[in-house]
Design a protein around this nucleic acid. Sequence first.
DNA 1: ACCACCTCCTGATCGC
DNA 2: TGCGATCAGGAGGTGG
Length: 270
Amino acid sequence: MPELPEVETVRRTLESLIKGKKITQVVISYPKIIHMDQALFQKKIVGQTIQDLDRMGKYLIWKLDQDVLIIHLRMEGRFYIKKEDVPLSKHEHVGFHLSSGEVLTYHDVRKFGTMDLLPIDNYLQLDPLNRLGKEPKDLTYDAFYEKIKKRHTEIKAIMLDQSVIAGLGNIYVDETLFQAKVHPERKGITITKNEAIKLLDAARWVLNEAIKQGGTTIRTFQAMDGVHGRFQNELAVHTKVSKPCPICQTPIIKIKVKGRGTYVCPNCQT
DNA sequence: ACCACCTCCTGATCGC
DNA sequence: TGCGATCAGGAGGTGG
């Protein structure tokens, strides 16, 4: 599932493919992806040029002339670039025709992805970005600790909460907790200041390493056709059930935390 | 404010 | 082998 490093990889890939091109037509086969009346969306976006590609947390942001297109890939969203106009396939739900003659298609088997077209003047004050917290690199230790120290829910659930800290999903939160040697079921209220510092440092390190590796290609995720990340080779715990912990060799176990599949070293993480 | 639970969606996997 | 049931999961919505 695309988390911050995967979305960053998509952003960089799209930057070289679509930046500076004008949207000449939009074809939509599954309108629920777009949080706006389909006809209005087409009317507003056609004619605008993709000036820049940005990202906040797991959100991909296309900066256009008057508006921004805010895209969340959720679990399986991905893009394909086509050299010519061909019909959308079963799992392609939106096709952006570009001034270059190419078509960028949005592909999403589970149809969970979202697109919001908002004014470039005030999109940060509007749903969905108005709720988004800071990324680990921008969050201070004090602010992070203040957000977790009184909470009675599991630290894993807190760190998946995008209003607390933006960018972590199920893979990187498991890796972060492992690096910080914190058990995912610890309640926020039990986390010490020192552990909060370790958690934030671990989140920064894990995300940076993953970005360097082009993200994690896992299950169904890939950035674009032919673009594969390599961070799956660096994972210490996620998907490693029964494999030896890289630190202590204890077999990694899989548990459920708040309904999420969770991988943990039962010896290192306390 | 906080928290548990439900929903969306479909391919893969499970159980009989 | 077949087929219905269950699972996976990010984040918004609901209700306590």
